[in-house]
């Protein structure tokens, strides 16, 4: 596969490491009320769509950027590639 890195252009997927569902960005607050349940859901209850999937990839053999790749799991078509840091900030994550 080819991942179109937002800063470096098309790169072979061999340079990347796959992690999984981009929903991992939404890490719960460990000190909040009900954290145990929140973490259980966060870590173990994932969608496994046959179709479009937002997932985290790491450019380990490149610039070490974590990316959010929107990929169709049936066709491998990649719709968008974003820097995970930008996506996380948009989702309200900060410090």
């Amino acid at each position: 596969m080819i991942i179109n890195h937002p800063l470096l252009g098309p790169r072979d997927a061999q340079e990347f490491v796959y992690l999984g569902d981009a929903n991992l960005i939404n890490r719960p607050d460990g000190l909040a009320e009900g954290a145990a349940d929140a973490f259980y859901e966060y870590l173990y209850l994932r969608d496994n769509p046959a179709g479009e999937h937002r997932e985290l990839w790491y450019h380990e053999q490149g610039d070490r950027s974590w990316l959010v790749v929107t990929r169709n799991t049936l066709t491998h078509d990649i719709k968008s590639v974003e820097l995970a840091r930008d996506v996380a900030r948009k989702m309200g994550r900060s410090k």
């Binding site: 490491v17 992690l19 991992l24 960005i25 890490r27 985290l56 790491y58 380990e60 070490r64 950027s65 974590w66 820097l83 995970a84 840091r85 996380a88 900030r89 994550r93 900060s94 410090k95």
Partner: peptide
């Protein structure tokens, strides 16, 4: 890899 993940994905403004 994990530290980069924490830095970029979980706490992007640290």
């Amino acid at each position: 890899r994990h530290l980069e993940y924490c830095r970029q994905v979980l706490w992007p403004d640290l």
